[in-house]
Nucleic acid binder design. Sequence first.
RNA 1: GGUGAGGUGCCUGAGUGGCCGAAAGGAACGGUUUGCUAAACCGUCGUACGGGUUAAACUGUACCGAGGGUUCGAAUCCCUCCCUCACCGCCA
Length: 423
Amino acid sequence: MLQVQFIRQHKEEVLERLALKQFKELHLVDEIIALDDSRKKLTVEYDETKAQANALSKEIGKLMAQGQKEEAENRKSTVSSLNARLQPIDEQLKATEKALHDALILLPNLPSKLVPAGRTPEDNEVVRSGGDLPTLYEGAVPHWDLTKKYDLIDFELGNKLTGSGFPVYKNKGARLQRALVSYFLDFNIDAGYTEMNVPHLVNEDSAYGTGQLPDKEGQMYHVTEDKFYLIPTSEVPLTNLYRDEILKDTDLPIKMTAYTPCFRREAGSYGKDVRGLNRLHQFEKVELVQLVHPNKSYEVLDEMVAHVEKLVQSLELPYRILRLCGGDMSFASALTYDFEIYSAAQEKWLEVSSVSNFESFQTNRLKARFKEGQEKAQLLHSLNGSSLALPRIVACLLENNQTATGIKLPAVLHTYFGAEEIA
RNA sequence: GGUGAGGUGCCUGAGUGGCCGAAAGGAACGGUUUGCUAAACCGUCGUACGGGUUAAACUGUACCGAGGGUUCGAAUCCCUCCCUCACCGCCA
């Protein structure tokens, strides 16, 4: 959520940058300023009237103590009439505040200066790439055949237990997952991230805090009886750890990593995009979250991108890093880099990580702040990134490294996996 | 799930209708003192939204788990909800 004060002070800039994000409802900006104007006006009216009433009420106490009953009764009726006047003002004020808030949450975050113009994924900028596209042997097949051939994942069993999109990992498939999770976590811990283990269900306040509610309710699984939501990513619990907190600047940066399952309803998806491991309702992911000083966040973003890049490189997979264009970025992001890995048998790029700087967009909603000395509290900047989403990594590892006799694993996984290849 | 107790500032904890944005102690921060450490002493020490100012000073309103209510006036009384703790039951 953008800050009204910023919008007021930088209206032209806000309009320009919203347009870059392909945001159409630019009229909201003027509406917001108008609503804020009336909010201020009503606040003054309310406060002044209330101040009178409060002062009189205080006098009543003293008059009563002095036994001046009549005078006290006089004041009482004055206060009563003041309060009666207050009521409609209060109602208007509340309605105005709500309207203002409702309009504010419709505005997406402003894209940073680095964001390329554009509307569709084709407009994203490739900033770097690495690794060589593998040449597969004659009999190479997509991962959904490999998982069957080596008995790694059973999609049908998952259907039986739950439904499509809930695969059952078996045997070396299960072990490969666990190896990857351990490796990713260790890699992150070595870079100074603190490992966290957080709830997989969150309450409404948390879902609201990171922006899943109110708009994306349909994308989450909802436990209606207890009003909990299954997390779509560990970004939700991790970032919400600091909801309504005021940190000291010396506590910064906060660097966290967590491994959790992620649950996504992904309503409306179909076709080959959802085949095999490409898109699931439940998958595993290791996530990075940082909360940092506002003047550090872009430096930190680069650092996180470099960190994920090193991780991908260590898996010896061909990758490219995209800087997302205005139209393809998420609602809350100011700048996003996507990591894609080439899935050789499917012959397409799969997104395996998305690293974003949200600036103060999330923290404004969360009220996650920090203080430098005696200064006024100010909003932190939040960032997050996957490191990495498991299923698509598995898909690429299997497809790209397949041989006639088995699947060779990158060296970094040998110890974790307990073998050099899946045969 | 049952019964009981309770939710106050960074923490502990007082406060049962006006003198309470809230005692006291601790922590933290700034300073004085100090050979060092420690101690002592002085000061500062919540947030938000307004007014005001070049900026301050100053000032108003709201907030004592959340939401409603009673009252001229609520941290304090009433109602609903949430949460925590203790004991019992059950149990990985």
